[in-house]
Design a protein around this nucleic acid. Structure first.
Lengths: 215, 215
DNA sequence: CGACACTATAAACAGTGTTTACTAGAGTGA
DNA sequence: TCACTCTAGTAAACACTGTTTATAGTGTCG
């Protein structure tokens, strides 16, 4: 039953976007009374958080193929580009997960799922970064796995979130956003590498087509 | 009169935060009827946009000292760190300006103010990056000023916005956010430099105090 | 003075999230 | 079988949003 409510919410969310997820619309689309939802969720926030947790689980699944690579650096590349793709393809979900300061952070249930490489993407990234450090991939002075993880995350997140928030302002002649994400990633990686890297990836200087973010 | 409304909105916004800016509260705090606001603003959105435009102007003023530096690279460093500081000190304004995909982008008045180094921070950054390119500061293959500007912007924005959205999740052992911003900036700069740079800045590995984002 | 323009308002409308009081029904135990 | 409880679902209301309409004031100008 919770599942049916969440399905309806998910559909509404994916089809009509961010602000369309209203309790009444969810209730209507499942042909129930708005108050019924409160039998299964304490809050609207709790309902939304259930959605987010599902999305987190999906993200973790999407990371799995990247873990097959032998070289830890390739694993790092893999999850970063996967994260980038996911954020660009599902901006609504991304916005909810990483651009909305709602999740109180002090919620014990929510917090316990974090920092675990199995269920949390930060924990997973952290462990891969640590593997890179152990494999002496990075320069010797770069020893703080948290700092490195947070920097990679911020870099990729910056490209995604800036695109979601400002990507539809045409006077900024935006370069293609995915290429920009890869450029950012390789920029960071290559500066951190112990053995100097090859050239940075090329980025097309044709401004991105206007079909960037379809609201 | 528009000014008085905006002042009230600004106070409300700064003191009670993002969601507290409601037309009725603004009207109450200035002791007018809610409908009166519609005499001076077509929308709530137009009122909010007026706030944002003021903030943009303030941002531009904050950039002025950075333009005094002789070396173009120092100018670039200056505006980036200023941007970083501003975003961290006024997260509410930052969120409104750069994390809310509201501004339709097709508004002609709004668009005309963009891309001008005098009134738009992107235009200003772009011109400084171009000066760096002309001064042969960057590696010869880095010729696309837009790409470079967008990359710097994304990097700094990533640190700020990630901190605003997720900085209150304690299990991520966040390193001090300002130091992380400078680290990100120098990471990007040093990889782009034609003449190799010195070491990256040190970042304290003490997790940031819990007083990060006071809601 | 009379006509006009303009300001501010009260009241309502449609839409939120949320709560309360209530009903119909399904079980369960005696 | 009969009462009993417990629960899923509901209608109606409440307190809020942003927004609109019709109306009462208030000044200015001819």
């Amino acid at each position: 039953m919770r599942g049916r409510i969440l399905d309806a919410a998910r559909n509404l969310f994916a089809s009509e976007g961010y602000d369309a997820v209203t309790l009444r619309k969810v209730a209507d689309s499942i042909e129930y009374c708005p108050a019924t939802i409160y039998k299964y969720f304490k809050d609207k926030e709790e309902m939304v958080r259930a959605l987010v947790e599902d999305d987190i689980a999906m993200t973790m699944e999407a990371f799995l193929p990247s873990l097959e690579h032998q070289a830890p650096l390739d694993r790092l590349r893999g999850i970063c580009t996967t994260f980038l793709k996911m954020g660009l393809e599902q901006p609504n979900h991304y916005r909810l997960m990483y651009m909305t300061p709602l999740l109180p952070g002090h919620d014990p249930v929510f917090v316990n799922k974090r920092s675990d490489p199995q269920t949390d993407s930060y924990g997973l990234s952290l462990s891969i970064v640590q593997q890179c450090i152990d494999a002496k991939v990075f320069r010797p002075e770069l020893t703080d796995a948290h700092l490195i993880t947070q920097t990679f995350w911020a870099g990729v997140h910056g490209v995604i979130s800036l695109h979601i928030a400002c990507g539809n302002i045409p006077v900024y002649e935006w370069r293609p956003v995915f290429e920009r994400g890869v450029f950012m990633l390789e920029l960071m990686i290559s500066r951190m590498l112990r053995t100097p890297s090859a050239a940075l990836p090329a980025v097309s200087s044709t401004p991105e087509s206007a079909a960037a973010t379809p609201a």
